[in-house]
Protein backbone atom coordinates (compact mmCIF):
# COMPACT_ATOMS: atom_id res chain seq x y z
CA UNK A 1 0.00 0.00 0.00
CA UNK A 2 2.73 2.45 0.95
CA UNK A 3 4.90 1.19 -1.88
CA UNK A 4 2.72 3.00 -4.41
CA UNK A 5 3.28 6.35 -2.79
CA UNK A 6 6.91 5.50 -2.08
CA UNK A 7 8.15 7.72 -4.90
CA UNK A 8 7.21 10.94 -3.21
CA UNK A 9 8.11 9.68 0.23
CA UNK A 10 11.16 11.01 1.98
CA UNK A 11 12.93 8.75 4.37
CA UNK A 12 13.40 11.16 7.17
CA UNK A 13 14.34 8.50 9.58
CA UNK A 14 18.04 8.39 10.29
CA UNK A 15 19.63 6.02 12.74
CA UNK A 16 20.35 8.69 15.31
CA UNK A 17 16.68 9.58 15.37
CA UNK A 18 15.39 6.25 16.55
CA UNK A 19 14.44 8.05 19.75
CA UNK A 20 12.28 10.62 17.96
CA UNK A 21 10.51 7.90 16.03
CA UNK A 22 9.77 6.09 19.26
CA UNK A 23 8.18 9.20 20.70
CA UNK A 24 6.03 9.65 17.61
CA UNK A 25 4.63 6.15 17.82
CA UNK A 26 4.84 4.96 21.41
CA UNK A 27 1.74 6.72 22.79
CA UNK A 28 -0.40 5.29 20.01
CA UNK A 29 1.11 1.83 20.19
CA UNK A 30 0.64 1.56 23.95
CA UNK A 31 -2.93 2.83 23.96
CA UNK A 32 -4.02 0.83 20.92
CA UNK A 33 -2.48 -2.39 22.18
CA UNK A 34 -3.68 -2.05 25.77
CA UNK A 35 -7.16 -0.61 25.23
CA UNK A 36 -8.10 -1.77 21.73
CA UNK A 37 -6.30 -4.98 20.80
CA UNK A 38 -5.76 -6.75 24.11
CA UNK A 39 -9.50 -6.55 25.05
CA UNK A 40 -10.44 -8.75 22.11
CA UNK A 41 -8.22 -11.57 23.37
CA UNK A 42 -9.05 -11.01 27.01
CA UNK A 43 -12.82 -11.15 26.32
CA UNK A 44 -12.28 -14.49 24.63
CA UNK A 45 -10.24 -15.69 27.62
CA UNK A 46 -12.84 -14.47 30.14
CA UNK A 47 -15.65 -16.22 28.31
CA UNK A 48 -14.37 -19.58 29.64
CA UNK A 49 -14.59 -18.52 33.29
CA UNK A 50 -17.09 -17.75 35.97
CA UNK A 51 -15.90 -14.58 37.59
CA UNK A 52 -17.45 -11.57 39.32
CA UNK A 53 -14.46 -9.29 38.79
CA UNK A 54 -13.60 -9.00 42.48
CA UNK A 55 -12.73 -12.42 43.89
CA UNK A 56 -9.07 -13.42 43.51
CA UNK A 57 -9.73 -16.65 41.61
CA UNK A 58 -11.62 -17.21 38.41
CA UNK A 59 -13.45 -20.52 38.08
CA UNK A 60 -12.72 -22.27 34.78
CA UNK A 61 -15.98 -23.57 33.31
CA UNK A 62 -15.00 -24.54 29.75
CA UNK A 63 -17.77 -23.96 27.25
CA UNK A 64 -20.40 -23.65 29.95
CA UNK A 65 -21.09 -19.96 29.30
CA UNK A 66 -21.53 -20.70 25.60
CA UNK A 67 -23.95 -23.55 26.33
CA UNK A 68 -25.90 -21.27 28.67
CA UNK A 69 -26.02 -18.60 26.00
CA UNK A 70 -27.36 -21.09 23.50
CA UNK A 71 -30.26 -21.95 25.82
CA UNK A 72 -30.94 -18.46 27.15
CA UNK A 73 -34.36 -17.17 25.99
CA UNK A 74 -33.48 -13.64 27.20
CA UNK A 75 -30.43 -13.58 24.94
CA UNK A 76 -32.41 -14.91 21.98
CA UNK A 77 -34.99 -12.17 22.53
CA UNK A 78 -32.21 -9.55 22.70
CA UNK A 79 -30.68 -10.71 19.42
CA UNK A 80 -34.04 -10.42 17.64
CA UNK A 81 -34.85 -7.05 19.23
CA UNK A 82 -31.41 -5.69 18.30
CA UNK A 83 -31.64 -6.96 14.71
CA UNK A 84 -35.06 -5.30 14.29
CA UNK A 85 -33.89 -2.05 15.88
CA UNK A 86 -30.70 -1.77 13.87
CA UNK A 87 -32.38 -2.68 10.57
CA UNK A 88 -35.15 -0.12 11.12
CA UNK A 89 -32.72 2.61 12.12
CA UNK A 90 -30.12 1.91 9.43
CA UNK A 91 -32.44 1.57 6.45
CA UNK A 92 -35.18 4.09 7.29
CA UNK A 93 -32.67 6.82 8.15
CA UNK A 94 -30.97 6.14 4.81
CA UNK A 95 -34.20 6.35 2.82
CA UNK A 96 -35.41 9.52 4.53
CA UNK A 97 -31.92 11.04 4.42
CA UNK A 98 -31.73 10.33 0.69
CA UNK A 99 -35.13 11.93 0.05
CA UNK A 100 -34.07 15.06 1.90
CA UNK A 101 -30.71 15.12 0.11
CA UNK A 102 -32.48 14.85 -3.27
CA UNK A 103 -34.79 17.71 -2.30
CA UNK A 104 -31.90 19.86 -1.07
CA UNK A 105 -29.71 19.12 -4.09
CA UNK A 106 -31.34 22.00 -5.93
CA UNK A 107 -30.81 25.72 -5.77
CA UNK A 108 -33.49 26.27 -3.18
CA UNK A 109 -33.59 29.27 -0.91
CA UNK A 110 -32.72 28.47 2.69
CA UNK A 111 -30.83 25.33 1.74
CA UNK A 112 -28.14 25.79 4.38
CA UNK A 113 -30.74 26.55 7.07
CA UNK A 114 -32.55 23.28 6.30
CA UNK A 115 -29.26 21.41 6.36
CA UNK A 116 -28.49 22.91 9.77
CA UNK A 117 -31.90 22.03 11.20
CA UNK A 118 -31.74 18.44 9.94
CA UNK A 119 -28.26 17.99 11.32
CA UNK A 120 -28.91 19.24 14.87
CA UNK A 121 -30.22 15.87 16.16
CA UNK A 122 -26.95 14.21 15.06
CA UNK A 123 -24.90 16.34 17.45
CA UNK A 124 -27.39 16.18 20.32
CA UNK A 125 -26.20 13.95 23.19
CA UNK A 126 -28.07 10.65 23.11
CA UNK A 127 -28.88 10.81 26.82
CA UNK A 128 -30.59 14.18 26.33
CA UNK A 129 -32.36 12.84 23.21
CA UNK A 130 -33.64 9.78 25.04
CA UNK A 131 -34.93 11.79 27.98
CA UNK A 132 -36.65 14.35 25.77
CA UNK A 133 -38.35 11.80 23.52
CA UNK A 134 -39.49 9.81 26.55
CA UNK A 135 -41.58 12.80 27.54
CA UNK A 136 -42.75 13.50 24.00
CA UNK A 137 -44.00 9.89 23.89
CA UNK A 138 -45.90 10.18 27.18
CA UNK A 139 -49.33 8.69 26.39
CA UNK A 140 -51.34 11.27 28.39
CA UNK A 141 -49.43 14.54 28.49
CA UNK A 142 -46.90 13.98 25.72
CA UNK A 143 -46.76 16.27 22.71
CA UNK A 144 -47.16 13.47 20.17
CA UNK A 145 -50.46 12.14 21.45
CA UNK A 146 -51.74 15.67 22.00
CA UNK A 147 -50.98 16.55 18.37
CA UNK A 148 -52.62 13.30 17.25
CA UNK A 149 -55.55 14.27 19.46
CA UNK A 150 -56.10 17.44 17.41
CA UNK A 151 -56.73 15.15 14.44
CA UNK A 152 -59.02 12.97 16.54
CA UNK A 153 -56.51 10.13 16.52
CA UNK A 154 -56.20 8.09 19.67
CA UNK A 155 -52.42 7.73 19.98
CA UNK A 156 -50.91 4.42 21.12
CA UNK A 157 -49.21 3.84 24.46
CA UNK A 158 -45.81 4.20 22.74
CA UNK A 159 -43.03 3.25 25.19
CA UNK A 160 -45.47 1.61 27.61
CA UNK A 161 -46.81 -0.83 25.05
CA UNK A 162 -45.01 -4.09 24.26
CA UNK A 163 -46.01 -3.83 20.60
CA UNK A 164 -45.05 -0.15 20.13
CA UNK A 165 -42.01 0.32 22.38
CA UNK A 166 -39.36 -1.01 20.00
CA UNK A 167 -40.77 0.99 17.14
CA UNK A 168 -40.87 4.13 19.31
CA UNK A 169 -37.24 3.75 20.32
CA UNK A 170 -36.34 3.18 16.66
CA UNK A 171 -38.01 6.47 15.75
CA UNK A 172 -35.55 8.25 18.04
CA UNK A 173 -32.61 6.34 16.53
CA UNK A 174 -33.80 7.27 13.04
CA UNK A 175 -34.38 10.90 14.03
CA UNK A 176 -30.80 11.08 15.30
CA UNK A 177 -29.28 9.56 12.15
CA UNK A 178 -31.19 11.17 9.27
CA UNK A 179 -28.96 14.26 9.21
CA UNK A 180 -25.82 12.16 8.92
CA UNK A 181 -27.22 10.16 5.98
CA UNK A 182 -28.39 13.39 4.36
CA UNK A 183 -24.92 14.96 4.52
CA UNK A 184 -23.23 11.86 3.08
CA UNK A 185 -25.78 11.60 0.24
CA UNK A 186 -25.69 15.32 -0.46
CA UNK A 187 -21.91 15.21 -0.89
CA UNK A 188 -22.21 12.18 -3.20
CA UNK A 189 -24.98 13.81 -5.26
CA UNK A 190 -22.88 16.91 -5.74
CA UNK A 191 -20.06 14.74 -7.06
CA UNK A 192 -22.16 13.33 -9.89
CA UNK A 193 -20.91 14.98 -13.10
CA UNK A 194 -23.62 17.19 -14.65
CA UNK A 195 -22.70 15.86 -18.07
CA UNK A 196 -24.05 12.39 -17.17
CA UNK A 197 -27.45 13.80 -16.29
CA UNK A 198 -27.55 16.13 -19.29
CA UNK A 199 -26.60 13.35 -21.68
CA UNK A 200 -29.37 11.15 -20.27
CA UNK A 201 -31.90 13.99 -20.54
CA UNK A 202 -30.98 14.45 -24.21
CA UNK A 203 -31.72 10.75 -24.66
CA UNK A 204 -35.18 11.33 -23.21
CA UNK A 205 -34.76 10.10 -19.64
CA UNK A 206 -37.32 11.39 -17.13
CA UNK A 207 -36.77 12.24 -13.46
CA UNK A 208 -37.34 8.66 -12.36
CA UNK A 209 -34.94 7.30 -14.98
CA UNK A 210 -32.29 9.78 -13.90
CA UNK A 211 -32.68 8.67 -10.32
CA UNK A 212 -32.94 4.93 -10.93
CA UNK A 213 -30.27 4.47 -13.58
CA UNK A 214 -27.77 7.24 -12.88
CA UNK A 215 -27.99 8.62 -9.37
CA UNK A 216 -28.81 5.45 -7.46
CA UNK A 217 -25.95 3.35 -8.91
CA UNK A 218 -23.50 6.19 -8.35
CA UNK A 219 -24.68 6.49 -4.74
CA UNK A 220 -23.93 2.83 -4.06
CA UNK A 221 -20.55 3.37 -2.34
CA UNK A 222 -22.15 5.94 0.00
CA UNK A 223 -25.02 3.57 0.69
CA UNK A 224 -22.64 0.77 1.58
CA UNK A 225 -20.77 3.11 3.91
CA UNK A 226 -24.06 4.14 5.57
CA UNK A 227 -25.26 0.54 5.94
CA UNK A 228 -22.06 -0.65 7.58
CA UNK A 229 -21.61 2.34 9.89
CA UNK A 230 -25.34 2.29 10.64
CA UNK A 231 -25.30 -1.33 11.76
CA UNK A 232 -22.10 -0.96 13.77
CA UNK A 233 -23.55 2.02 15.62
CA UNK A 234 -27.16 0.96 16.11
CA UNK A 235 -26.30 -2.65 16.97
CA UNK A 236 -24.58 -1.41 20.12
CA UNK A 237 -27.29 1.05 21.15
CA UNK A 238 -27.34 1.61 24.89
CA UNK A 239 -27.92 5.24 25.93
CA UNK A 240 -31.37 5.54 24.39
CA UNK A 241 -32.57 2.30 25.97
CA UNK A 242 -31.08 3.19 29.34
CA UNK A 243 -32.84 6.56 29.42
CA UNK A 244 -36.13 5.63 27.75
CA UNK A 245 -37.25 2.10 28.61
CA UNK A 246 -34.70 0.18 30.69
CA UNK A 247 -35.21 -2.67 28.26
CA UNK A 248 -38.93 -2.95 28.96
CA UNK A 249 -41.82 -3.40 28.85
CA UNK A 250 -41.24 -7.14 29.38
CA UNK A 251 -38.03 -7.17 27.34
CA UNK A 252 -39.60 -5.51 24.30
CA UNK A 253 -36.60 -3.17 23.94
CA UNK A 254 -33.99 -5.27 25.74
CA UNK A 255 -31.18 -4.80 23.20
CA UNK A 256 -27.90 -6.72 23.38
CA UNK A 257 -25.96 -3.69 24.62
CA UNK A 258 -28.31 -3.37 27.57
CA UNK A 259 -28.28 -7.11 28.34
CA UNK A 260 -24.48 -7.02 28.24
CA UNK A 261 -24.42 -4.07 30.63
CA UNK A 262 -26.74 -5.87 33.07
CA UNK A 263 -24.73 -9.09 33.10
CA UNK A 264 -21.43 -7.23 33.47
CA UNK A 265 -22.27 -4.44 35.90
CA UNK A 266 -25.48 -5.50 37.68
CA UNK A 267 -25.18 -9.29 38.02
CA UNK A 268 -21.35 -9.30 37.81
CA UNK A 269 -21.25 -12.30 35.48
CA UNK A 270 -18.17 -11.19 33.60
CA UNK A 271 -17.74 -14.55 31.87
CA UNK A 272 -21.26 -14.68 30.52
CA UNK A 273 -21.18 -10.97 29.65
CA UNK A 274 -18.03 -11.65 27.60
CA UNK A 275 -19.92 -14.27 25.61
CA UNK A 276 -22.61 -11.68 24.84
CA UNK A 277 -19.92 -9.20 23.77
CA UNK A 278 -18.39 -11.81 21.47
CA UNK A 279 -21.82 -12.57 19.98
CA UNK A 280 -22.16 -8.86 19.15
CA UNK A 281 -18.71 -9.00 17.55
CA UNK A 282 -19.48 -12.09 15.47
CA UNK A 283 -22.87 -10.83 14.26
CA UNK A 284 -21.45 -7.43 13.29
CA UNK A 285 -18.49 -9.03 11.54
CA UNK A 286 -20.75 -11.37 9.62
CA UNK A 287 -23.20 -8.58 8.66
CA UNK A 288 -20.34 -6.36 7.46
CA UNK A 289 -18.90 -9.13 5.28
CA UNK A 290 -22.28 -9.96 3.76
CA UNK A 291 -23.08 -6.31 3.10
CA UNK A 292 -19.62 -5.73 1.65
CA UNK A 293 -19.88 -8.68 -0.73
CA UNK A 294 -23.47 -7.93 -1.69
CA UNK A 295 -23.07 -4.24 -2.44
CA UNK A 296 -19.39 -4.47 -3.34
CA UNK A 297 -20.29 -6.65 -6.32
CA UNK A 298 -22.75 -3.97 -7.42
CA UNK A 299 -20.10 -1.28 -7.31
CA UNK A 300 -17.90 -3.29 -9.64
CA UNK A 301 -20.68 -3.76 -12.16
CA UNK A 302 -21.32 -0.03 -12.29
CA UNK A 303 -17.69 0.87 -12.68
Amino acid sequence: MSKKTGGSQTHLFFKKERFSLAIFLIPSIIIIFVFNLFPAFYSFFLSFFNWNGFSPNKEFVGFNNYIMAFKDPELRNSIIVTLIYSSLVTFLSMIIGLLIALALNKDLKGKSLFRLLYFIPVVTPSVASGITWKYLFDPYNGVINKILGYFNINGPQWLNSTSWALFSVSIVGIWKRIGFCMVIYLAALQDIPKSYLEAAEVDGANVWHLFRYIKLPLLLPSSLFLIITGFIESFQVFDLIYTMTNGGPIGATDVLGFLLYRHAFKYFNLGYASVIALIIFVILFFLSIVQWKYTGGGVKNVA
Binding site: M1, H11, L21, F24, F35, F38, I232, L260, A277
Partner: peptide, 28 residues
Protein backbone atom coordinates in the same frame (compact mmCIF):
# COMPACT_ATOMS: atom_id res chain seq x y z
CA UNK B 1 6.64 9.83 6.00
CA UNK B 2 9.06 7.80 8.05
CA UNK B 3 10.47 4.46 6.97
CA UNK B 4 10.85 1.85 9.67
CA UNK B 5 10.65 -1.89 10.12
CA UNK B 6 7.23 -3.56 10.33
CA UNK B 7 5.45 -0.33 9.35
CA UNK B 8 2.84 -1.98 7.16
CA UNK B 9 2.22 -4.74 9.68
CA UNK B 10 1.75 -2.22 12.49
CA UNK B 11 -0.60 -0.13 10.39
CA UNK B 12 -2.70 -3.17 9.54
CA UNK B 13 -2.93 -4.12 13.22
CA UNK B 14 -4.14 -0.59 13.95
CA UNK B 15 -6.79 -0.82 11.26
CA UNK B 16 -7.95 -4.24 12.47
CA UNK B 17 -8.65 -2.80 15.93
CA UNK B 18 -11.20 -0.49 14.30
CA UNK B 19 -13.29 -3.58 13.59
CA UNK B 20 -13.47 -4.59 17.26
CA UNK B 21 -16.75 -3.18 18.59
CA UNK B 22 -16.76 -1.06 21.76
CA UNK B 23 -18.97 -3.66 23.45
CA UNK B 24 -16.09 -6.14 23.33
CA UNK B 25 -13.61 -3.63 24.75
CA UNK B 26 -15.84 -2.54 27.64
CA UNK B 27 -15.29 -5.31 30.21
CA UNK B 28 -11.52 -5.83 29.71
Amino acid sequence: KIRFKFKDALFIIFLITMMIPDSVKMIP
